[in-house]
C-alpha cells in the first residue's frame, strides 16, 4: 500500500516538474531576433539577423500564426511558420526544409582520438573568399520575412 502511494507521489512529482520545466523553457528560451551586438556567441537560441533589413527586433506583430512563402534553398525548399504572442515571436516552426538523407548510420566510434575544441573567436575580415552555408539561411530569412509581413 505505502509502495503504491510512494509510486504515485513520485510520478506526480515527475509530471509537475516536467510541466514547470516546459513552461520555464517557453518563457525563458523563446527564440528572439537579436541584432547580435557584442561577441555574438552569447545569444543562445537566437537567430542572427545581421544582414536582413526586413526583420526588426522592435516590431510589434499581431498575435497569431503566420506561414511564410516556400523559398528555394536550391537543395530543397524552406517554409516556416511564425507564432506571435503578445506582439513577439515566440516560435518559428519548420513546415518544410531540405532533407534528402537517410538518418540511420553505423559509425565505429571506438578508439577515436580526442579532437581539439575551442570557443570560436572573431578573426580578421581581410580575406579573399568566405566559406559558409549561405543558401539555407537566405531561404529561411525569405520565408520568415514573408511570414512576418503578414503579421504586421
Amino acid at each position: 500500500m505505502t509502495k503504491t502511494i510512494k509510486k504515485f507521489l513520485l510520478s506526480a512529482f515527475v509530471i509537475i516538474s516536467s510541466v514547470f520545466y516546459v513552461l520555464f523553457q517557453r518563457v525563458g528560451n523563446g527564440p528572439n531576433f537579436s541584432n547580435n551586438t557584442g561577441a555574438g556567441l552569447a545569444t543562445r537560441n537566437s537567430i542572427s539577423q545581421n544582414s536582413s533589413p526586413m526583420v526588426s527586433a522592435n516590431a510589434n506583430y499581431k498575435d497569431g500564426q503566420y506561414t511564410g512563402t516556400s523559398a528555394d534553398a536550391y537543395y530543397g525548399n524552406i517554409q516556416v511558420k511564425a507564432v506571435i504572442q503578445n506582439g513577439k515571436i515566440t516560435d518559428v516552426q519548420f513546415l518544410d526544409y531540405p532533407q534528402d538523407r537517410r538518418t540511420s548510420i553505423s559509425i565505429n566510434t571506438n578508439a577515436m582520438p580526442i579532437l581539439k575544441q575551442e570557443a570560436i573567436q572573431a578573426q580578421s575580415a581581410n580575406v579573399d573568399i568566405v566559406t559558409g552555408a549561405t543558401d539555407t539561411s537566405q531561404a529561411f530569412q525569405e520565408s520568415l520575412t514573408s511570414a512576418l509581413n503578414r503579421a504586421v
Binding site: S51, S124, A125, D128, I129
Partner: peptide, 19 residues
C-alpha cells in the same frame, strides 16, 4: 595561396578562422 575565411554562423559578417 588564397585566404579563405570560415564564416561565423552566429554573425554573418565575421570570420572565425582564416585558412
Amino acid at each position: 595561396y588564397w585566404k579563405v575565411g570560415i564564416r561565423n554562423p552566429f554573425k554573418r559578417e565575421e570570420n572565425v578562422k582564416i585558412l
